[in-house]
Design a protein around this nucleic acid. Structure first.
Lengths: 341, 341
DNA sequence: AGAGGTCGCGCTTGATATTTC
DNA sequence: CGAAATATCAAGCGCGACCTC
């Protein structure tokens, strides 16, 4: 037999129940539950005890309905993006201490961004934080007309007025990677890009610019890619087919770089002895001892802090968008890069 | 200049606003917004138009507050578990067509399961679906005393009355893997286990049982592991150090198997020519062309369907827990297994 | 300062009133 | 005239802001 629950299903206790049990008014219970001032120490204790006994929990919805502020930040994220998971960790860590709750809405197969944001709006979020949104700028602008919107990791210049943008300096990241390789003595550096993924265009541009700056414009070699391991593997195969091999490869991200590493291993091409490989993101993957990938790290805690901070700033008085917040990436040198043979 | 929003910040339109604009009562607007019967076609159109014009959206919270049913399923998941992401996709796919909304609450560093479930309860979820919960059985029983609780992918027998359990037959999965290897001619089959991870004990047991059934009890070799790539790599190194190498390795999951593969590649041990490797989960990773991992697939759509189904069944009348729902896994044969040399 | 009373947030939901054939 | 279709009314859901004692 299951243990007798303090409160059977379907009969959730309310403020009034606690009040009755403690022999006080509901208003007082409300005060106590919110830790507001206006209640004596003795009563406070009695109320808390009564609440405990009957298993009372404040109803968040009723609460939000009544108070004009909801202190709710809606976050849209992609279920299949580990990078979004990392950002979410950071967002929780910043938002909750600041007194804001997070409402999550996932983008998944069969559940597009429109559905995700609609759910968030219906939940009365005060602001939206969108991780790597793919929606057209017009849609973002439309949302921004209704409430503060922060776009993380997607560049949007001018086309979506009112949208706050928080992103990594992707071009600078690519530049740092190229600089590092050139410093090691590389000249033939190929780039397997990210196609139409957020940030891909900037990384591609950063790569090109950096190559030119080192007088290597004629060595520029961009291969079409994407954001998965498979895209990296495909790119690596293309490199193997077209001899000679470059001495270094800059992949769009760590997942792609992993595909590159794997392909080279199978082809008996030694990394970093024959070819150096650099990733992007500094994901958990890159840090694993047996991958040990040199990569461009995004400052995830900082991105999360900025995203939440911008949203809150807009909610708490700031009228105008601050424009872009661009966070510098940093190079993390590990074992997949070395001087050319 | 940003486009003039239909509704400026902070003045969210309500039913009453729509009613005033359409010249009808709020009750009627409510009927129209819910697509309920009781409104004429012409009025319906007029109301919808008015709602559209002023950018009205129903307030989900007020709605839930008023109606006795909330049709809200709370789902707790781990941010760093790709397997949970896959399950979530399935859960969305089943729940929304059934008329239920999903409230997400993530477990992350600094945000434990208690916090996660508390948030869900405060949100007035009608039932809880917990993905791979690690909380003590007593806590789960306590929750089950308040509302229907479904635990996915964690075994709980007897110790947590009232909790519905949906899980894969992990022991059977391990058995199928061993059977496959034995059929190929393997006898020296090692198992790098999952330590204390959910399902690890069952997989370990399934491995042992299957080995015994094939009269290979004396070849049983279990190495301590875990659920990450690193754990697999560590196990593989241990195998390499202690000659002779087994002819086949069963890893706890695909991530662990990836670590094993990588380690063997680096050590110039050919897979599957010298050693066969099997994973568990049939994650996206395993399917990648360049990994091509033989693995034990969990039936994610079925797990999701059962989890949501059980929760809804309990909400819609069924009084008693149905006990465990155990889903059969299936072997997915790819390129990392072959006969021994 | 500590306490209670009251109203209404935005919505749904019976019961009730008005129409139409 | 009565059933069915439309529309309205009024009462809260659980809570917090504000007022009073």
């Amino acid at each position: 037999m299951p243990p007798t629950p303090a409160v059977p299903h379907g009969k959730r206790p309310t403020l009034a129940d606690v009040a009755a049990r403690a022999g006080v008014s509901t208003a007082l219970v409300s005060i106590v539950m919110r830790d507001a001032k206006g209640a004596g120490a003795a009563t406070r204790e009695r109320v808390l005890e009564a609440a405990q006994e009957i298993g009372y929990r404040p109803d968040a919805r009723a609460r939000l309905l009544r108070s004009h502020r909801s202190h709710l930040l809606g976050v849209q994220f992609g279920l299949q993006h580990p990078f979004h998971s990392d950002l979410l960790e950071g967002i929780y860590a910043v938002a909750e201490p600041a007194g804001y709750q997070i409402a999550l809405s996932a983008v998944a197969a069969g559940r597009g961004e429109q559905r995700a944001t609609d759910a968030l709006l219906a939940d009365r979020c005060e602001a939206l934080i969108l991780l790597g949104p793919q929606a057209p700028a017009a849609r973002l602008a439309e949302l921004a007309g209704q409430l503060p919107v922060v776009s993380v990791a997607r560049r949007l210049r001018g086309t979506a007025p009112g949208v706050e943008v928080v992103r990594t300096a992707d071009d600078e990241g690519a530049r740092r990677a190229v600089d590092h390789l050139v410093a090691l003595g590389h000249r033939d550096i190929a780039h397997i890009d990210g196609g139409r993924a957020p940030g891909a265009a900037d990384r591609r541009r950063g790569y090109r610019t950096a190559m030119s700056r080192h007088d290597l414009a004629d060595r520029v070699h961009v291969l079409p890619g994407g954001l998965t391991e498979e895209d990296g593997a495909t790119g690596a195969h293309a490199l193997l087919d077209a001899t000679p091999l470059p001495t270094a490869v800059l992949a769009f991200n760590d997942r792609s770089a992993t595909g590159v590493l794997d392909t080279f291993l199978r082809a008996r091409v030694s990394v970093p002895d024959e070819v150096s490989v650099i990733g992007f993101d500094d994901s958990h993957l890159a840090r694993l001892a047996h991958i040990d990938l040199t990569t461009v790290g995004q400052d995830i805690p900082r991105l999360a802090e900025l995203a939440v901070g911008r949203a809150i700033a807009r909610l708490e008085g700031e009228r105008t968008p601050t424009g872009e917040a661009v966070v510098a990436p940093h190079l993390v040198i590990r074992g997949t890069t070395a001087g050319p043979a």
